[in-house]
Simulated assay, not measured.
Amino acid sequence: MVLEVGLQLPHATLSAPLRYAELARTLGVEVGARVPAVEVREAVLGLRRGKGMVLDAADPDTWSAGSFFTNPLLPVAQADALPPEAPRFPVGDTGTVKTSAAWLISHAGFERGHGLPGPAALSTKHSLALTNRGGARAADVVTLAREVRDGVAAAFGVTLEPEPVLLGLTL
């Protein structure tokens, strides 16, 4: 539960330089370009909506906490042990590589919609979102999260970490 947020934003009509290739492609510009902030907002909302990450009372794929697992940061040797097609994003000169939790989940055999009909299931739009299809209890979501976490660990030797803070429950 978020009780308070403090933000200090610069006054500007242009975005910061775009860092995400998917967002830049959507806007028809190169990574690093600056675009009117209003256009960036609409593009981000469109991309998030397509992944079921914008709340819609009529869409059970949006009844989630968003991306449930963080993208793992791995030592280079562990990242090198992943299949060649696994996403890899070097993290500066830290000796670590970020990979995609969503890629690991789907390639460990957990397709979109895994767990349907529910009450807790992976979103049919994005394998990283654990959804409450209606009537799920916290224990149902945690059971699904454990199944996914353990399956990814068995397939790739990577232990996924939850992004939401779990109060009174452990994964």
Score class of each variant (00 low, 15 high):
Val91Ile: 11
Ala120Tyr: 10
Gly151Trp: 13
Thr96Asp: 08
Val35Arg: 10
Pro75Ile: 00
Ser123Gly: 01
Val142Ile: 15
Gly151Ala: 09
Val31Cys: 08
Ala139Asp: 13
Glu22Ile: 05
Leu47Ala: 03
Thr131Trp: 02
Leu128Pro: 11
Gly46Cys: 04
Gly115Phe: 02
Leu169Ile: 00
Leu45Ala: 01
Leu18Glu: 05
Glu42Ala: 15
Ala86Gly: 13
Ala57Gln: 11
Thr96Glu: 13
Met1Pro: 01
Ala155Val: 12
Ala139Thr: 14
Gly95Met: 10
Val40Met: 09
Leu82Ile: 07
Val54His: 01
Leu171Glu: 01
Leu14Glu: 15
Ala120Met: 12
Ser127Cys: 15
Val158Glu: 08
Pro10Asp: 11
Leu14Phe: 06
Phe89Val: 09
Asp150His: 05
Leu14Asp: 05
Leu160Thr: 08
Pro119Arg: 09
Val40Glu: 15
Gly6Cys: 07
Ala81Val: 08
Arg41Asn: 07
Phe89Arg: 08
Val5Thr: 02
Val76Lys: 01
Glu147Leu: 10
Ala155Asn: 08
Pro117Trp: 10
Glu22Val: 11
His11Lys: 13
Arg149Asn: 00
Gly28Asn: 00
Val76Gln: 06
Arg88Met: 02
Val35Gln: 10
Ala138Asp: 04
Ala139Glu: 15
Val141Gln: 02
Ser123Asn: 13
Asp140Leu: 00
Met53Ala: 14
Asn132Gly: 00
Thr170Met: 06
Pro60Gln: 13
Phe110Pro: 00
Leu45His: 05
Leu116Gly: 07
Ala102Ile: 11
Arg19Glu: 14
Arg88Lys: 14
Ala57Cys: 08
Asn132Tyr: 03
Gly134Glu: 14
Ser100Trp: 09
Ala57Lys: 08
Gly32Trp: 04
Ala57Asp: 03
Leu144Arg: 02
Thr99Pro: 09
His11Ala: 14
Val31Met: 01
Ala139Trp: 11
Leu14His: 09
Gln78Met: 12
Phe68Lys: 07
Leu169Ala: 11
Val148Thr: 07
Asp61Tyr: 12
His114Gln: 03
Pro72Asp: 03
Arg48Trp: 06
Thr70His: 12
Ser123Val: 04
Phe68Trp: 15
Ala79Trp: 12
Leu128Ser: 12
